[in-house]
Amino acid sequence: MSTHDLRTRVREQAKHRLPAPVVDRIRARASLRERVRVLEAEAQESRQLNRRIAELTDVVAELLIPLDARDQDRVDEVLARYQQGL
């Protein structure tokens, strides 16, 4: 039997000797850790929306409204100026 197998077997035996409430607490803690990990990832996704909002605000204010003029010379000018300012 390898060291790994031995370690797994000892753990399994220990688990069976633990009272049920202790096993439940360990399971709950592991599940909490996973929930915190997921929550942190979700919080990070929400934070990233800040940049998306700022970019959309910038595009609407600096690009979309001037482009609505539909005048090609004006459109070219607006696009060139927007690019220079990025």
Binding site: L49, N50, A54, E62, G85
Partner: peptide, 19 residues
């Protein structure tokens, strides 16, 4: 105090400095 406003302000700063 809102990061979205802070980023928008930073865009404005870079535009002004490029100008």
């Amino acid at each position: 105090t809102s990061p979205a406003d802070i980023i928008t302000e930073s865009y404005r700063i870079s535009r002004a400095m490029r100008a």
